[in-house]
Design a protein around this nucleic acid. Structure first.
Length: 574
RNA sequence: GGGGCUGUAGCUCAGCUGGAUAGAGCAUCGGUUUCCUAAACCGGUGGCCGGAGGUUCGAACCCUCUCAGCCCCA
């Protein structure tokens, strides 16, 4: 926000306020300055520490401020001794649905993008104390699935695959086994997702929405993984027909009507340009009907805040499904049907449209089509460039922007991929700590496995084990206004608010994490080249080293937090 | 025909609520290693922010029009 020469941070929107108040911005700034100096400086919300050392009016009406040494010191102490996190979304219950790939083939690179984006966002929301439930919708009924079974059946009986069936090579592995293809493909998808750190709380099968088994010969796919504790009354011996219930409800509430032999949803009520068909005149249901029923169950299971991440090819769906879900929620509140949630204002549905990934190979675009079998598998990419680079690469750009992905380039650029730059920063800090241990600056007998502010684990890093002995170190950094060390500390302090900001925005721009990581790593590498942390000549040097280690420990802690939010590892050596 | 996304350095992209001299990485040119990891650091070159109007103290950002690319629906 502020460049270093403008102090630690600056306030710029005073000019806008002054317009409304019809006051001279400079005068207003001067008044605010007096207030800041008397009020804010004397009562920071932590202890009684003066927050500001300096504040001044600059330019046409900016206020530039500088933190006091004491404030920075206490902030550093907190960052080191407490868990990182925020309470900005405390009490929020959010159900996220993403990936939801059809179980008709392996995941492609586009799915990888939604997966990485979704899981990063989920971690960011959890970081802000929201309760997040991650779900994958398994589209296990319908024409595409029938085609899958027909194609496999043809392969098994050595007959030609139907023209409009699936021709991908991956299906040929079913020739010599009797596995259920759908279940098997789904399992493979899960395995792939696991490699990039994506875990779902639930795989919701579309077939569970209706009673009539869609495909009697494959009963094993009917096993419902849905957590019954969360699904309210769904645990009775007879499975309720959610879809029928939902459609009946809509009819009874006059949200749906019959016309021309079809059943229509009054989506125009909510501002759609026309009503949409739920059940065609031939009796078959539209995807839309199933989607409404699915979203209905999300609400009924007690999740009032919904986030859907859809591919750009589904953007036509956004409006109608938002409308349908809102109307459903209104009904649920109106009828006082059992809801595990409390307030109506908790309801929100946010549908994030992720643009597609354009895949190139040596400058030539590769078209993705699952049916012909010509697609870029996520699995293949992970194997070629590794899970860390995959996650980072897929996170780097705004989700609303098409992502250009050249496989050849990604392969070649292994060492130039920015993820290594950040990881290297983390590993380098470890090297400094190892050196400090060798030099006797850190005391081996004081290393501990009970680290404040971190979850219990058997595998604390050296840095983490050293935290307790660093907490007592006084801050002796030369934190001149524009020093790299000061900028680095401010950057680390910024991490939590960076995450808060992206979770509060509708666009949920997780690529900001990448930017923050790269900036932080850059500042660290700069500092590393500016000075030597471990000198070990005099007592003074030793104290200096300890104070620097304290700063570096915070940097390592936040770097690791940022990396793991993206599903990227934070190695200790490279 | 209707709708969505995008247009910023040679390439790939950031740019947070309209704010101070538009930023990174790669590429390119030149420097830095008796010292904690050179997978690093420092410096140079490179810009009509697609174009035109408008809003205002101020616009890459907001509004209108327009051009180009990608996608969805009919």
């Amino acid at each position: 926000m502020a460049s270093p020469q403008h102090g630690d941070f600056s306030y710029a929107s005073l000019l806008e306020i002054s317009k409304k108040l019809k006051r001279n911005p400079k005068e207003l700034a001067a008044d605010l300055l007096v207030f800041l100096k008397t009020e804010a400086c004397s009562s920071s919300h932590e202890k009684q520490v003066a927050m500001l050392a300096h504040a001044e009016v600059a330019g046409p009406g900016f206020i530039n401020m500088q933190f006091s040494q004491e404030f920075l010191n206490s902030k550093l102490h907190r960052l080191l001794s407490l868990p990182l996190g925020s309470t900005s979304l405390k009490g929020k219950k959010i159900l996220m649905e993403y990936v939801s790939a059809n179980p008709t083939g392996p995941l492609h690179i586009g799915h990888g993008r939604w997966a990485v984006f979704g899981s990063s966002l989920a971690r960011a929301l959890s970081f802000c104390s929201a309760k997040v439930y991650q779900e994958f919708y398994v589209n296990d009924t319908g024409k595409q699935i029938d085609k899958l079974y027909e194609s496999v059946a043809a392969i098994r009986s050595s007959k030609p695959i139907p023209e409009d069936g699936y021709h991908g090579e991956y299906l040929h592995s079913f020739k010599n086994n009797t596995e259920d293809p759908l279940q098997s493909i789904l399992n493979e998808q899960k395995e792939t997702l696991k490699k990039i750190g994506v875990h779902f709380d639930n795989f919701f099968h579309e077939s569970s929405l209706r009673t009539a088994p869609h495909r009697p010969q494959s009963k094993n796919i009917q096993e419902i993984e849905e957590n019954t504790a969360l699904s309210g009354s769904a645990s009775s011996s007879e499975k309720p027909d959610t879809l029928k219930h939902c459609l009946d409800l809509m009819e009874s509430k006059n949200l749906a009507y019959h016309h021309d032999g079809a059943l229509w949803f009054r989506s125009s009520l909510g501002g759609d340009d026309k009503d949409r068909v739920l059940r065609k005149s031939d009796g078959s249901l539209t995807y839309f009907a199933l989607d409404i029923a699915y979203h209905f169950t999300k609400l009924k299971r007690g999740w009032p805040s919904l986030i859907d991440i859809l591919g750009a090819d589904h953007h036509g769906y956004v409006k109608r499904i938002s409308i349908a879900t809102s109307l459903m929620y209104k009904y649920l509140i109106a009828s006082k049907e059992q809801l595990q949630t409390s307030q109506a204002e908790d309801f929100s549905i946010s549908i994030i449209i992720g643009q597609l990934v354009k895949v190139f190979r040596g400058g030539k675009e590769v078209r993705m089509s699952k049916r012909s079998g010509d697609f870029i598998a996520l699995e293949e990419t992970i194997q070629e460039i590794g899970p860390d680079a995959t996650c980072y690469f897929l996170s780097r750009q705004k989700i609303s922007n098409s992502l250009y992905f050249d496989l050849e380039q990604a392969k070649q650029k292994n060492l130039e991929n920015p993820v290594y730059y950040v990881q290297y920063g983390h590993a380098r800090i470890h090297a400094v700590f190892r050196k400090a241990l060798d030099a006797g600056i850190l005391q081996e007998n004081l290393l501990t496995n009970t680290v404040p502010g971190l979850p219990a684990t058997q595998e604390y890093t050296l840095i983490e084990q050293a935290i307790p002995q660093l907490l007592d170190t006084p801050l002796m950094l030369s934190l001149e206004p524009t020093s790299t060390a000061r900028r680095l500390l401010l950057q680390a302090m910024q991490f939590s608010s960076e995450i808060e900001q992206l979770t509060s925005s509708v666009h949920a721009e997780t690529h900001h994490i990448c930017r923050w990581l790269a900036e932080t790593a850059s500042l660290f590498h700069k500092l590393y080249n500016e000075q030597i942390f471990i000198k070990n000549k005099t007592t003074e040097d030793k104290e200096y080293s300890l104070s620097m280690l304290r700063l570096l420990a915070v940097v390592a802690k936040t770097l690791k937090a940022g990396l793991s939010m993206l599903g990227v590892s934070a190695p200790n050596t490279m």
